[in-house]
């Protein structure tokens, strides 16, 4: 564990806490893409199939449980909680995420480290995570106005990706046999998707104004 990975995990956790807090405090999920949240729940469930077969560390297992539970809690809130559910704007959240799931699964069947059940699902989760933010970014683009907490949620998610890239560079330099091409290439693609958002986030931060994305 290096400082970059820890910082990445912490900003990832922070992003989820910010989102849960926003939904809990305002009893509203306006501006939040349910499709992105469902994709993340699938990502964690598919990736952490090794929770009961490979023990890495208490930290590792604990975080896996936290990520699975929190992503399911968010989806549950958006689908079942009577007040939160009413604030969900279906008309804005129109991204066809089933295509992403199908495409990522096909890619995982072709590109994986080993052709085993766990490894194919692991690769699938990596590919799906890389594109899972797309429905959220499209929703923000469509609604134009981004409230502070939703902006911070996406900001922390992007920061998490940035730290993971630093972590891979660090590991590549310090661990002689560290090569994890599937995760690294997908990770770079994922981080690149945030570039546009970050640009506008920093401009609004610099000008001390509300975050607005161009139509």
């Amino acid at each position: 564990m290096n400082i970059f990975r820890l910082a990445g995990d912490m900003t990832h956790l922070l992003s989820i806490i910010v989102l849960l807090l926003k939904i809990y405090a305002t009893k509203s999920c306006s501006g939040v893409s349910r499709k992105t949240q469902e994709l993340y729940a699938i990502v964690f469930l598919a990736r952490y199939l090794d929770l009961f077969t490979d023990f890495i560390s208490v930290y590792n297992s604990f975080m896996k449980v936290v990520f699975i539970a929190s992503s399911l809690a968010i989806v549950w809130c958006m689908r079942v909680h009577p007040m939160v559910r009413r604030s969900y704007d279906k008309e804005l959240d129109t991204f066809r995420h089933y295509f992403l799931i199908a495409a990522c699964f096909l890619l995982a069947l072709v590109l994986h480290e080993k052709f085993t059940f766990q490894e194919v699902f692991w690769a699938f989760s990596i590919y799906l995570e890389a594109v899972a933010i797309l429905p959220q970014l499209v929703l923000l683009q469509r609604s134009g106005n981004v409230d502070n907490l939703t902006g911070q949620y996406v900001f922390f998610l992007g920061a998490y990706r940035g730290f993971y890239i630093l972590n891979w560079i660090y590991r590549y330099l310090t661990e002689p046999r560290f090569t994890r091409w599937i995760a690294c290439v997908s990770g770079v693609v994922q981080t690149a998707l945030y570039a546009d958002f970050f640009y506008y986030y920093f401009i609004s931060w610099k000008n001390n104004s509300k975050l607005k994305l161009p139509a």
Binding site: R5, D50, D54, I56, N60, K64, F67, N167, E175, P176
Partner: peptide, 10 residues
């Protein structure tokens, strides 16, 4: 370290 079984990253 990298020979450890399983994926150590989240």
């Amino acid at each position: 370290l990298s020979a450890k079984k399983g994926k150590d990253e989240l």
